[in-house]
Design a protein around this nucleic acid. Structure first.
Length: 213
DNA sequence: TGCCAGGCCGGGT
DNA sequence: ACCCGGCATGGC
């Protein structure tokens, strides 16, 4: 628990996911794909203003209008398709009940999410963890960089599943732990491990050689 | 001013 | 099984 302890000591609890409802978590998870969160916040504010921050409303609105509401999130035409796709799946297969849709055996739910257009492994895991409360680890670009930086993965073994397994195999399957861990990795990544790294004053700077997760 | 951000898809090798 | 181009806004 070396890396986690350093991050938690430095930054404390992160209180993720930043949203008021489970549906807002899913919407945010789709909107934040390859997008800065500040741009997602504007899009969510627009959805809320238009009373479209729910899958019932997203199912009802036409796609071009939805796209305009989420324009600030970037790749907005694609994301409008993804949101509509999720909404129709939720309505038709689960009677609009997100809690029910996400309950059950985690791997089964995960495969179901992955079958939807616009839901890849990271988005699926974010939904499972933050909206469903399932102990699945969310791997993002920052997690990859941190593991690379500390020699915890081979260069060339960058597949999503293999990196996810690094965490899943060495940590207790605890949703609260995975919640904080992912959020803390994003936080340290934003501050110190972007494309142009800034390792000065990084709380992990002293962990150079194969430290533990 | 160009590069980047809490990825994913479809087509090609 | 990987690799790549496209998608697109707002901030630094």
């Amino acid at each position: 628990m070396e890396i986690f302890d350093c991050l938690y000591t430095a930054y404390g609890p992160q209180h993720w996911w930043p949203a008021d409802t489970k549906e807002e978590i899913v919407i945010g998870a789709i909107l934040t794909q390859n997008t800065a969160w500040t741009n997602v916040e504007k899009a969510i504010a627009e959805l809320k203003r238009a009373k479209c921050l729910s899958f019932r409303a997203i199912d009802a609105i036409d796609e071009p209008s939805l796209a305009e509401l989420i324009r600030s999130a970037g790749t907005f035409r694609q994301k409008a398709v993804y949101l509509k796709s999720f909404a129709s799946w939720l309505t038709e297969k689960h009677n609009g009940d997100l809690g029910a849709a996400l309950s059950g055996e985690p791997n089964r739910v995960r495969r179901e999410l992955l079958s939807l257009k616009g839901i890849g492994p990271e988005t699926a895991d974010a939904i499972l963890l933050y909206a469903g409360g399932h102990p699945t680890f969310v791997v993002d670009a920052y997690a990859k960089r941190v593991l690379r930086r500390h020699f915890l993965i081979e260069p060339g073994n960058n597949g999503y599943e293999s990196i996810r397994n690094v965490f899943m195999d060495s940590l207790k399957p605890d949703a609260q732990l995975f919640n904080e861990y992912h959020a803390l990795l994003v936080e340290v990544g934003k501050r110190h491990c972007k494309a142009t790294a800034n390792c000065e004053s990084c709380p992990l700077a002293h962990l150079d050689h194969n430290e533990c997760l």
